[in-house]
Design a protein around this nucleic acid. Structure first.
Lengths: 296, 296
DNA sequence: GCGATAGTTGACCCGAATCGTCACAAAACG
DNA sequence: CGTTTTGTGACGATTCGGGTCAACTATCGC
């Protein structure tokens, strides 16, 4: 028909899960009725009647619908819960296989020769959080973490705060700058042993007249590794980060300076840390911006 | 180049997870090296070099790879574990949304008017197991369950056996016929309170000269609902089942007779059960066929 | 500096997978 | 027995993604 209360969302998701348009539509239609004939499905799903059969056949092979081989045929979707569970299991299997097969063939090059003086960019909250956690876990002396005041986006998930706590327990000094009261309290509550300062680093968002791009998180570890993410407000807020695990490049220098400036307003131990930092890694940071050397 | 130890499996899976061919190939290639240039990726992944950029851009937007914006650009995949975790979270979200959106629009028709005298067919082990569990849970008096001796396919997962146990605790009489020693013991061990008989129902697979289609499971609940599945041995064994939750149709009658015959060889309580069964359910069966009268 | 080489981007072509429609046989209905 | 509905197969129209190429830019070597 055409009086559907917009069934497009589940259809969209089902497509992402691998179903074809007609399959998705037909399935959603079937979830709305106890059972139905091809014609009914066609009308509710807005799928050409003659193609409902193909679609349902597939769905049946997936185990998502049952078919009554009578004349006319009748179809019914399995209960929603079962369907979800079914799909979930299916994908779980895939994830497992994926891990196995990936780990089975991984090696190809020679050695690792990891860290170089490189700047990488990562996108996506999840991925960035992972990277941040990696940084935090690698900290030996000091962590400085400044984060946006926006409480909406989950830039400091529990698993991240947990890592921060672990770091402090390891003897790492942790400074956290929160740009908002809310974030401040949250961090304070979760990781009490951390030195939280409700920063006045508003200068982190200085030039932004247009609110479509602002800083998300700023992480400096042992004065040698830096991660800086920005939130671009397209339709849905997306986070992009640049990071480096080496010193000597412009990014590190800038980040260092920024943080130092910010922290100076709170504690003094900053200067000393600043000095220490300058001498725990090789490459002579040249200068601004992009004049950084590349791999090893 | 072309000396890959077959990276096709992970590629295939990644495609199922929604990645494009080039994206999948590039990602797999990147998991095999700490980092790489477009050229290297191209060679390992066997992707046109000029298209590596597109692919990696996408991967970056998914958060699966990091990009070094230097010249030449260099790429690196996030650790396998992180990648899996990332994808898993992504799909979990989808499942949740799917459930929500489906439940939000479900209603369309009028009443339910469920059960009719219908025969449905279902395919896929998972889906069939779900249906079987539904049957078992609905049992009030008696369950007869005969299953194939094949120990390879998991036709009796734990969650199913658990339900059987629950049924017995509910007061339902459960008979289980196992066509193999292994299955017999397994069931016996898991659900001791059940009456297991190592059936000689070989006649269940009588006409099969060609081994490409055999009976999987046979379930009869309260002598009113029947489920019968067959295993077709194509490339991968696939299970298809027909079932009905009503009496009075041929399927039920046949199933009843089959089971009765089989059980008779073991215990006598069968007859009594058979008799009892005749008086607890509704539809007026038409004719003879089997000479057993039905319900009231 | 200046040409040579390599990296990067975008455009284009083509084939496969799907969508959308149709014609037609089979079955149901009155 | 004619009309309507149902089931099956085939067919063109699109769309999407794979595959290739040419042009443009940047880096390197002389």
């Amino acid at each position: 028909m055409s009086n559907e209360p917009d069934q497009s969302e589940p259809i969209e998701i089902l497509r992402e899960l691998g179903l074809k348009e007609y399959e998705a539509r037909s399935f959603v239609a079937l979830t709305r009725i106890p059972q139905g004939s091809a014609k009914e499905v066609s009308e509710i799903a807005d799928v050409p009647r003659t193609r409902v059969y193909d679609a349902v056949d597939q769905l049946q092979s997936y185990g998502l619908v049952d078919v009554q081989h009578s004349t006319p045929q009748r179809f019914r979707a399995i209960p929603i819960d079962e369907a979800i569970a079914l799909l979930r299991r299916e994908f779980d299997e895939r994830f497992d296989s994926l891990r196995e097969s990936l780990e089975a063939i991984e090696p190809v090059g020679e050695e690792s020769l990891e860290s170089g003086a490189n700047v990488w960019t990562t996108s996506g909250e999840e991925a960035i959080t992972s990277r941040a956690i990696g940084f935090i876990d690698s900290a030996e002396e000091e962590i400085v973490f400044v984060l946006d005041g926006d409480d909406e986006t989950e830039l400091t998930p529990k698993r991240l705060l947990d890592r921060l706590r672990v770091a402090t327990e390891r003897g790492v000094t942790v400074y956290v700058g929160a740009l908002s009261e809310g974030t401040y309290k949250e961090v304070q509550a979760t990781v009490p042993e951390v030195e939280v300062f409700e920063s006045e680093l508003e200068w982190l968002q200085p030039q932004t007249e247009k609110e479509d791009e602002r800083i998300g998180r700023l992480l400096l570890v042992d004065r040698g590794r830096v991660l800086l993410s920005s939130l671009s407000s397209g339709n849905s807020v997306s986070e992009t980060a640049i990071w480096s695990d080496s010193v000597g490049n412009g990014l590190t220098i800038i980040g260092r300076r920024l943080l130092a400036a910010g922290l100076d307003r709170e504690g003094e131990n900053l200067d000393s840390a600043e000095n220490r930092a300058g001498s725990h890694d090789g490459t002579g940071g040249t200068d601004g911006e992009s004049g950084d050397e590349r791999e090893q």
